[in-house]
Structure formats: C-alpha cells, structure tokens
Design a protein around this nucleic acid. Sequence first.
DNA 1: GTATGCATGTAATACGTTACATGATTGT
DNA 2: ACAATCATGTAACGTATTACATGCATAC
Lengths: 184, 184
Amino acid sequence: MGRASSNMLRSALLGLLAQGPRSGYDLRKQFAETPMQVFSDSPGSIYPALQRLRREGLIVEASPRRRSGRRRQDFKLTPAGLRELEAWLRRPITRQDVIRSLDELMLRFAFTGEVLGVARTREFLRELHAQLSAYVAELESFHEAAAPHMSLSGRLALQSGIDGFRLHARWAKEALGELQRAQT
Amino acid sequence: MGRASSNMLRSALLGLLAQGPRSGYDLRKQFAETPMQVFSDSPGSIYPALQRLRREGLIVEASPRRRSGRRRQDFKLTPAGLRELEAWLRRPITRQDVIRSLDELMLRFAFTGEVLGVARTREFLRELHAQLSAYVAELESFHEAAAPHMSLSGRLALQSGIDGFRLHARWAKEALGELQRAQT
DNA sequence: GTATGCATGTAATACGTTACATGATTGT
DNA sequence: ACAATCATGTAACGTATTACATGCATAC
C-alpha cells in the first residue's frame, strides 16, 4: 500500500549520505558527472526526495561546513536512516529483483561493501550469483523452446538478454574471488 | 511538457499490437510468461494504458475473434498508431538512451526488425554500436582517473557496468553480421 | 554593477503500483 | 452448485518529469 516498490533514488541518497555529509547540489553533481547517470540530476527529483527523508527523520541538517559564503544545506544520516539503509542492503535477493532491477542490485552491492563490510558483501555475491544462474537457465530453456517460432530480431534480442545475465553471473563469481584475495 | 520521457509500456503495447490483434489479457500473459518480464503484468498498468491509446486514436477494437464464450476485447493498431510506433523506432539514439534506457533500445531493436525491415535494423545497430563504444570509452577514462580513490566494491561495480556496455557493443557488431548473412 | 553560475525550491502533469471490485464462464 | 480462473476495470497513493522561479555570490 503506497510505501512502495523500489524507490531507488531514495536508497541511493541514503547510501551516498552514509559516506558523509553532502548537500543536494553535491548529490546532483555526483549524478551528473559520475557513472551514476542512471539517476536524474534534475532538482525536481532530488530536493523533494531529500525533504521527504528529512520529514521521516532519516536525515538531518549537518553543520554547514561551508567551503564558501554560498547558501548550502548539508545533510547527514540519522541512526534511523542508517537502519533503513542497512535494511535495504540486507533484503534477500529475489528473482524479481534480478529481472526488473539489476541496476538496483549493483547499487546495493557497492554500498554493501562500504557499509556492511567484506564478509557480508561476499554473502550478497553468492546469493546474487545463485539467482542469476537460475534465471539464465530459465531463459535458456525458454530460448530452446521458442526460438523456432521467433523472428530473427526477436531471437537476437533474447540472446543479448541471456548474454547480459550470463556476464553478470560470471562477474559475481570473479568479484567474489577478488574480495577473497583482498580479505586475506 | 508532460508528454514525457520514455513511456516504455506504451511503446511495448504498440509494438505488440503491430504483430496482430490482442486483448489486454493476452498482453498481460505475454508479460508474465515470456522474457518480457521487465513489464508488470498487473491490470492496473495495462488496462489504463490501453484506454489511453484508444482515446488517442492509436488503437481500436478489433472484431472479437472469440476463441471462447468469454468476454474479450481485442485491439489493433490504427494507421496513426503505426505512425507513432514507427516514429518511436526511428528516433535517433542518444547518449542518454544508452545510459538510462538500454532496455528500451533493445525493445526498439526487436520491433524495428519486425516493422521496418532488415535494412533499417542494420542502420539501427550501427548507430547503437557507435553510441555504446563512445560511452565505453568515456567510462574507461573515468575508471582510469577515479579508480585510485574508489573503494574496492565501488571499483568492482564500475567494472561490471563497463563490462556490460562492452558486451552490448560486441553484441551489436555480431548481430550486424548475422543480419547481413540473413539478408543475402 | 551586471552577467554567470551556485543552490534551492515549486507547480502541473502523467504514470506505475498495490489493492480492491466485479461479472461471467468454464470445470466438476 | 460451487470453486477456480478468465477478463476487465477502478481508487488511492507516491513519485519522476519538465519547466519555471528565486535569491545570492562571485567574477569581470
């Protein structure tokens, strides 16, 4: 009921603010100038989202740490905000997540490493790999059954999808190895 | 103003209806049971979307081609609907499309093959490959500059993103080859 | 002292989501 | 006759999008 679905921007804001205090403008710049460009940098999305988080007590204004005389409103996480972030990070990975919001899972991966530590990140990757492998298998069996009746472009598009998930699965495995090396 | 952004569901409905008359329920089943599961199969999204398309004159009721005594409302594209579909398919591929809606581009690819023919599809793939390569290069140079200051998980996540785009670029090239073989 | 960019905000609109509602038709 | 499933719809809610608005610092 309402309190809904993914709300990826909300989580991204919490995750970034967990790294340290930032202003809305800082966040907009980060969305605009880094590979986080999946997020809109328009003020109409970010400022209202920050106000909502503030109203819910998940973030508060931080001491204005002004690096200039400019008006500037920094925010930082509250304990409640950190709890919500961690709850998001710890959500079990579902088949639906893999299908409909792989982007969000990758975001969760990045923040998990920074917020919950290496051990938990490796669990995350194992779960992710399992779900991805399962879905790849599903797609392959669909492909086998349906390919004969599909158009060439349909088949090629499906193949691209399968390849993408397979690549992510392989990536998860390799990342797991890298974390292991870094941990020891 | 308003008439906005991607509206991927709208385009998907037009594309599917271009293949032949279907009912809302058919479309829901297709979303639920095929790899098109990026789309929600909930009635609250599909039926309103169909009503909007009908009100705009892009689709009309088709003769009820009933395969049972059940109530059933089939829709088919109007000439205006086909025009809008083709306009969507012919939109130039932007950097933003690649970053924020690769899914939509893959959908466009599939329908382009079915609606506009092989020649146009190959143009599409060339454009797509160019945009993907350009963005991969961008990401690589960001990676080179920023990697030293990033956390391990941040770096791994970024690497996954780069790999994904690189894979799509390679796919576009291979698909181009397959279409060429099929065309001759 | 005027333009440019910093920094935050708001209004209109459309859309997806969840949940609920409603008949009609098969199957048993 | 009754349950399950077919098939379509509606209502409340939250949120992204686009475009516009505002005020204050710097820079020149």
